[in-house]
Design a protein around this nucleic acid. Structure first.
Lengths: 132, 132
DNA sequence: GTAAAATAGGACAAAATTAGACCTAAATAG
DNA sequence: CTATTTAGGTCTAATTTTGTCCTATTTTAC
């Protein structure tokens, strides 16, 4: 099914579209949604989260819309994923200590953890600006 | 939430347990389930898939059970994941061509693809034998 | 050959997560 | 001050994941 859920997929695509215009340019949901084939109301909700996190900002009313606050080179895929679908994690047990009792000494945990760290590194060093 | 779902988490833990005994040793579901705190009936279903794939084999009747067919050093986490929860994939669009129309030229797709390949590599070179 | 021990397999149910729709509030233009 | 445009927030529907249950089949022991 894929680790990147539809919500973060939409987010990445929408932000990439925004990043390909001059900084500060405002976009209304309906425009992004129709250009990227994303359900409007869903994208709206995703953008609310992105706005709370400070990647974008919003302005209501006529002439309003959303606009990027951060430079595309400073926004990583990892950051987007974390905002939209939560912390990057290969396995639940890496995130939640109490899932299994043997946590600290667990060999499986240790191994998965090193893989996860490499994955995080890869996602972290891929900024939006690389996706244009 | 994590990419590794509960079913493959269970599979990895169960197989790891089996791998720490001499090859050919038979295990009954109820024993593995209770030792690893896994719901019996769920583990049974997971093991059916693993058996179909050839990682383990089963014997019915008295004295029956499941036993490893492949050597633990030859079973990678990637293989287990693929059997239990399907192909490793970072994003749906990498797997399913028809998710978005711009597939081949899509910059996002290309980038995610290289990350996915590295992830696959990492999972592939981590065999069960490393988890004991 | 019958009973007991074990898995196989499929249909079904519950819970959790994801995706999406709908209604409300704010800002602006006239 | 009203209509329009736009985002905010709550709620619902769909899907996926996780799990149960029941019946059938195979194997062994007596």
């Amino acid at each position: 099914m894929g680790y990147i859920r539809r919500n973060s997929d939409y987010a990445i695509r929408a932000l990439t579209l925004m990043a390909s215009s001059p900084p500060g340019k405002k976009f209304i949901i309906s425009e992004i949604a129709s250009r990227q084939n994303i359900p409007q109301t869903f994208l709206r909700k995703i953008f609310q989260g992105l706005a709370r996190s400070g990647i974008i900002d919003s302005k209501r009313g006529v002439g309003g819309g959303f606009y990027l606050l951060k430079r595309p080179s400073k926004i990583s895929i990892k950051e987007i994923l974390e905002i939209v679908q939560g912390p990057v994690s290969l396995s639940e047990c890496l995130f939640d200590e109490k899932v299994c009792g043997i946590s600290p000494s667990c060999r499986i945990r240790k191994r998965l953890n090193t893989i996860q760290q490499k994955l995080e590194y890869l996602l972290n060093r891929t900024p939006l600006s690389e996706l244009l």
